[in-house]
Amino acid sequence: MLEQTVEVIKTAPDGIWVRAVEPSGCGTCGGQGCSSRRIAELFQRKPRLFLVDCDLSLAPGDRAVVGIADGSVLKSALRAYGVPLGLMLAGALLAQVVQPGDGPALIGMLLGGMVGWLVARGGRTVRPVVLRRENQPPFHLMKG
């Protein structure tokens, strides 16, 4: 199972919205901010939020560990990329059988791609689930 530490952003009736918590560094430089981390920060996009299933009572600001089943990433990738690509090729080949030429092949490829896109969008995707709360430190420092 693939696991990731997340921070709860908000709750919803069908789950919770979370944002992935990135580690401070790879550990080689002791978190001091090596050049490769600084370069990566230049190209960093705005953090994305994800809806995950949750059976625990969590509030915004809590940290938890979410997991997704092994193989589900591969299945999703095949559905998102493999099905449209396969149907594009099948559409182009079928069009070549019916009417040889580049024009019919292009039309068949486009039609197959549209059908593949519709098929890939359909169906239910497997959402990650909250596995456990992140281990809290035994003491809590307070300002003041």
Results as ranks from 00 to 15, higher is better:
G30I: 09
P23F: 00
L58R: 03
L110F: 15
G82H: 04
G82V: 03
G116Q: 02
A64K: 07
G103E: 10
P84A: 06
V83E: 02
C54A: 06
G108H: 10
A77S: 14
V98D: 03
E3G: 01
P60Y: 02
D55P: 10
G33N: 10
D70Q: 15
S72L: 04
T11C: 13
M1S: 12
A77C: 02
L56H: 13
L89R: 01
D14P: 03
R37L: 15
I39H: 09
A92K: 04
S24E: 11
T11Y: 03
D14K: 13
I16C: 10
C29F: 07
D70N: 14
L141K: 07
V73C: 01
R19F: 00
L2R: 05
I107P: 02
M1P: 12
G30F: 07
Q136C: 05
A77Q: 01
C54P: 08
V129H: 14
G101Q: 07
R19L: 00
I9L: 07
A95V: 06
Q32K: 15
G116T: 02
R132Q: 14
C54T: 08
E7A: 11
V126T: 15
G61H: 01
G31E: 11
L89M: 14
R133C: 10
D14R: 13
K75H: 10
R121E: 11
G71T: 12
R133T: 12
P13C: 05
P60G: 01
P84M: 07
V65I: 15
V21K: 02
V98S: 03
W17E: 11
V52S: 08
P138N: 11
M142A: 12
V65K: 03
L2A: 06
T28K: 07
G82M: 05
G27I: 04
V66L: 05
R121Q: 14
G33Y: 10
W17Q: 08
V8K: 07
V130R: 07
L42S: 08
V6S: 05
Q4Y: 03
S57H: 12
A64E: 06
V65S: 03
L87N: 03
A40Y: 05
A12T: 11
V129M: 06
P137D: 11
A105G: 14
I9M: 10
P137I: 12
L118D: 00
L131E: 14
G33S: 09
R127V: 04
L141I: 13
V97K: 11
L42R: 15
R48L: 13
V65P: 01
I9P: 01
G123D: 10
P137F: 12
F50T: 09
P23N: 04
R48M: 09
G15E: 09
G123P: 09
G31V: 04
L2G: 00
G112Q: 07
P138D: 14
D55W: 02
I68G: 13
S36N: 13
G113S: 13
C29I: 06
V18I: 13
V129N: 06
G27T: 05
P84G: 07
V126P: 01
Q96I: 00
G86W: 01
E7W: 00
I107F: 12
R37H: 10
V83D: 01
G27D: 05
G67N: 04
G101H: 04
G30T: 09
G86N: 01
R124S: 14
V21C: 06
L106F: 15
V52Q: 10
A105V: 02
G91F: 02
K75F: 09
D102F: 06
L49F: 03
